[in-house]
Amino acid sequence: MKNEALHSQFGAKIASYLSGEMNPGERVSFEQEIAADAEKGELFSEYSKIWKGVDQLAEQSGYNVDEEWGILSEKMDFSGKRGLPGNTRKLRAFVFRAAAVLLIGIAGVAGWVVVRNMNAYEALAVEEGSETFELSDGSVITMNAGTTLKYDTRENSGERRVILSGEAFFEIARDTARPFVVEAGSAVIEVLGTSFNVNAYRENETVEVTVHSGLVSMAARSKTGKQILLNPGNAGVLYKTGKQLDIVSTADPNDIAWKTREMVFSGTPLGEVISVVNHVYRSNIVIPDPSLMNCTITVSFRDQELGAVLEVITSTLDLSLSREEGQLILTGEGCK
């Protein structure tokens, strides 16, 4: 702009327009001003281009690249092969047994299909602790104690179907042609490639699905109910009757603590803390005195033994622990 004085004066106006500092009245008269004067209009368009570029930069400035590199590195194996942690068992689920087909031939097809359908499911069971399995499609399933999982051994079924009783964390390999389907209690959960936790112990009143990545579809098996879509940070809760299906937002940092043995409590009431501990350690800790429930605790645990966890809780809140008929009983003064 030729006129320097006009430039700096008008520049300030543009800046405050673009920053949203103007009130609606000022905005309207500013817009009229630039529409009426070509030189001002041109200056405004240049400034707003810079502004957009700055905004795009600002969108990128929120990422901590060190942290992000750490997240990616954890997922990767730089030795060349992609591996899985420790004691993962590999399974031949979803593998089409081509050899069998060749032997049976056309005449045998009908009979084979029936036989295959009857024997299509194989079962896995974990009684204590937790165990990790890898299916042949690359999906990894970690099962919690007291969990059984039946999986379809056929490959030609157009989907990957498992039947779950208990609790498991699923990291599903993406295969858009064949959705992964989990039947759990009264719920049916369908995904394409994602990670999520399903808590469907028979004694629970609900089936709970929490999503860690990707998108998960959940519905009641009755087929009459609605279908819900869950995003990371959401949980789907289906009540046992199979009638009520809700989405709740989980900020629950402990939903897969049973798998990671990492628990985070921040001003959490004792009752809730103990319920998480019982879930993670399959322990039976009870608090007979309701006044203790008001006590809150802020602490985090990383792969600690139950004894160490209880030691921290009891000494923090000045509680005593006694053992009676397989139960651990917490007693104390209570908190105001």
Partner: peptide
Amino acid sequence: VENQMSKALKIMREKLAHYLTIVI
């Protein structure tokens, strides 16, 4: 603050003059 904001934009426009006319 208002003056500094307008100064920032002015300086940036001068530095980016080349890009603004050719590529943008």
